[in-house]
């Protein structure tokens, strides 16, 4: 408990709220870095996932590729890319974008796939164009699973952004590594607690968002409701 007391003291120490290593600054870096990474990953994964989900083509390839991507340890990718590109944040961005793509991609295409075919046939029958079907039927109905995928990706990126500090001056992970080098366990533990709190806070926010994005009339449907629930929660690790 003593250790925790010193870690809390470290977190509350006013000296850690000034300068280039200030806690709010590190939290800000951590969040901005994670957000930008998620934007990159989404820009790649969402259109691709929608294409796969809407056409039903390339699913096997997507599953295999994302399965392979998931087995890749981020630390390895991070150090390898860092050796290629040198100092700066490029290596962490590349490594973490690769990490974030599979869950978002899966969220996007399973969101479309989970929709009852009859719903889409009905939309087509009432005269909707393909684009309208995507926009007015598939997008809103697929949203909960997509948000589930984003939630999962966000948590992974927030968690792994800690590791990015191994090669770059970035985010809350700095406290872990500089504490390790200077044998300052209060700093390591304090930094760890901050990352954990940040992850839990985001988990809570996403849980709330997911509650609100389920379109009216979908949540109560007996056939698909349990499927959706299992889906989003499992996808959220």
């Amino acid at each position: 408990m003593n250790l925790f007391a010193s870690a809390i003291a470290w977190i509350l120490d006013p000296a850690n709220y000034v300068g280039l290593n200030a806690i709010p600054l590190r939290i800000g870096q951590h969040l901005v870095f994670s957000l930008v990474t998620l934007v990159f990953a989404s820009a790649i994964a969402i259109p691709l996932g929608y294409l796969i989900g809407h056409t039903g083509r390339g699913r096997g390839l997507a599953v295999t590729t994302s399965g392979g991507l998931r087995a890749i340890p981020t630390l390895g990718l991070l150090t390898l890319v860092a050796l290629w590109v040198g100092i700066g944040v490029v290596a962490p961005y590349v490594a973490l974008t690769v990490l974030a793509i599979p869950p978002i991609l899966a969220g996007a295409y399973t969101g479309f796939e989970a929709i009852d075919r009859r719903t889409i046939d009905a939309a087509r029958a009432v005269g909707m164009s393909e684009l309208q079907i995507v926009r007015k039927v598939e997008l809103p109905l697929g949203l909960p699973l997509l948000i589930g995928g984003l939630r999962s990706a966000t948590l992974q990126v927030i968690a792994t952004a800690t590791l990015a500090a191994y090669v770059a001056d970035l985010g809350l992970g700095r406290y872990l590594f500089s504490g390790l080098k200077t044998r300052d366990y209060a700093e390591m533990l304090g930094g760890s607690i901050l990352v954990i709190l940040l992850a839990l806070a985001l988990e809570g926010i996403f849980a709330l968002i997911q509650r609100f994005v389920v379109p009216r009339g979908v949540s109560g449907r007996p056939g698909t409701a349990p499927k959706l629930r299992t889906g989003s929660s499992a996808a959220a690790r």
Binding site: L83, I87, Y166, R174
Partner: peptide
């Protein structure tokens, strides 16, 4: 800041 303790990234920079 270059976080590799004078390793390859520091040298490259």
């Amino acid at each position: 800041p270059v976080e590799d303790s004078g390793g390859p990234l520091t040298v490259k920079a």
